[in-house]
Amino acid sequence: MSDLSKITVLFVEDEQDIRDALEGAIGDEFQSFIMARDGEEGFKKFQKYKPDIVVTDILMPIKDGLEMSKEIKKISRDTPIVVLSAFDEKERLLKAIDIGIDKYLIKPIDADELMNVLNFIGQDLLSLDDTVSLGGDYKFDRSKKVLIKGDTIIPLTKKELLFITILVKNLGVFVLHEEIKKYVWINKNVSDAAIRTFVKRIRSKTSKDFIKNVPGLGYQINTFI
C-alpha cells in the first residue's frame, strides 16, 4: 500500500452530498483532500494547490470535467486524472482518451473502490516498488516486464505483454477497447471479437478470473481473485 498521507487529491463533483460523503470517508487518508463543485473552480484550485491526483465527474455546470481535464493536461501532462463516468457515457470516455485521461471509474462508486484506485496511483507516484501485487498469487515486475504467479514467470507473447502492461498501469479500473487497440495493435484494424479471442488465450495461461470484462467498454485485471 502507498503512503497516501504524502499525497494531495483534488476531488471535483457538483453534487454536494457526494463530495461530503467521500471527504468524510477517505479525506483523512491524504495530506490534503481539496474539493471543487465544477470544472471552473476545479481548475482554479488545481493552479493554486497543485494536487498530486485529480478525481473528477464529467457532467457538471459551468465547465465539465473533460474541459477542465484538457486544461490541466496542457499545463501538467503527468498529473494523474481519474474520471467518474456513468455507464452510458462511452462517447465522452472516447473523447477522454484523446485528452489523456489516466483512469476511468463507472458510477456509482464507493469509497473502498476509489481508495483502491488511489492506492495504485499513489504507488506509482511514490515509486515504492517495481513489483506490483495483482491479487491472488499474481504480480507484475515493471522493471523486467514479466508476469509472475508465485515464483513462476508466465510466458507471454509481445502483444500479450503489452496488453497486461496497460492493464497493470490502470489497476482498479477498466481500459477501453479503443485504448487497448491503440496501445497493443498501434491503431491497426482489429475487431472486438479478435480481442475476445486474444483475452481468452491469456486467461488460458493465467486463470478464467484473472481478466475481468466490462461489457461494451473494456477490460481490467481482477485484483480481488
Results as ranks from 00 to 15, higher is better:
residue 50 K to Q: 15
residue 64 D to E: 07
residue 155 P to F: 04
residue 166 I to R: 01
residue 173 V to Y: 01
residue 105 L to V: 08
residue 192 D to K: 10
residue 51 P to F: 01
residue 15 E to S: 13
residue 74 K to Y: 11
residue 150 G to C: 07
residue 19 R to V: 15
residue 52 D to E: 08
residue 83 V to P: 07
residue 42 G to F: 00
residue 90 K to E: 11
residue 177 H to M: 14
residue 32 S to K: 12
residue 25 A to C: 09
residue 165 T to C: 04
residue 22 L to P: 12
residue 81 I to F: 07
residue 134 L to R: 01
residue 91 E to A: 10
residue 123 Q to R: 14
residue 173 V to S: 14
residue 154 I to Y: 01
residue 206 T to I: 07
residue 168 V to F: 02
residue 204 S to L: 05
residue 185 W to D: 04
residue 138 Y to L: 09
residue 200 K to G: 15
residue 121 I to T: 03
residue 100 G to R: 01
residue 117 V to R: 00
residue 133 S to D: 14
residue 67 E to D: 10
residue 162 L to G: 13
residue 35 M to H: 02
residue 65 G to I: 11
residue 33 F to Q: 08
residue 76 S to E: 12
residue 178 E to L: 10
residue 12 V to W: 03
residue 84 L to M: 11
residue 74 K to F: 09
residue 124 D to C: 07
residue 216 G to A: 11
residue 25 A to G: 11
residue 78 D to G: 09
residue 98 D to P: 05
residue 209 D to S: 15
residue 46 F to Y: 14
residue 104 Y to P: 08
residue 26 I to N: 02
residue 147 L to H: 02
residue 19 R to C: 15
residue 175 V to L: 02
residue 177 H to L: 10
residue 36 A to T: 06
residue 36 A to Q: 04
residue 219 Y to M: 14
residue 13 E to I: 08
residue 57 D to V: 10
residue 144 K to D: 15
residue 134 L to C: 15
residue 163 F to C: 08
residue 68 M to L: 08
residue 10 L to Y: 01
residue 60 M to R: 01
residue 203 R to Y: 05
residue 48 K to P: 13
residue 122 G to Q: 00
residue 88 D to W: 01
residue 91 E to M: 12
residue 29 E to R: 13
residue 144 K to C: 04
residue 203 R to T: 06
residue 116 N to F: 06
residue 13 E to M: 05
residue 57 D to P: 04
residue 188 K to Q: 09
residue 163 F to R: 06
residue 185 W to L: 10
residue 75 I to C: 03
residue 111 A to C: 12
residue 140 F to T: 08
residue 68 M to A: 05
residue 134 L to V: 12
residue 156 L to G: 07
residue 75 I to H: 05
residue 36 A to N: 01
residue 100 G to W: 01
residue 9 V to E: 05
residue 214 V to L: 07
residue 21 A to Q: 09
residue 67 E to F: 02
residue 166 I to W: 00
residue 191 S to F: 12
residue 32 S to I: 08
residue 158 K to Q: 15
residue 100 G to S: 07
residue 159 K to C: 09
residue 158 K to I: 15
residue 95 K to M: 12
residue 104 Y to V: 14
residue 17 D to M: 11
residue 180 I to N: 03
residue 160 E to Q: 15
residue 5 S to V: 12
residue 133 S to M: 10
residue 125 L to E: 00
residue 207 S to P: 03
residue 123 Q to Y: 06
residue 168 V to H: 00
residue 105 L to A: 12
residue 107 K to N: 06
residue 218 G to R: 03
residue 43 F to H: 04
residue 62 I to N: 09
residue 146 V to E: 15
residue 169 K to L: 13
residue 146 V to T: 15
residue 53 I to W: 00
residue 160 E to T: 08
residue 138 Y to M: 04
residue 74 K to G: 05
residue 98 D to W: 01
residue 103 K to V: 09
residue 7 I to R: 00
residue 2 S to E: 03
residue 185 W to K: 07
residue 216 G to R: 00
residue 7 I to L: 08
residue 187 N to K: 13
residue 82 V to F: 00
residue 158 K to P: 06
residue 172 G to E: 04
residue 49 Y to E: 14
residue 15 E to C: 02
residue 6 K to C: 04
residue 88 D to P: 02
residue 142 R to P: 10
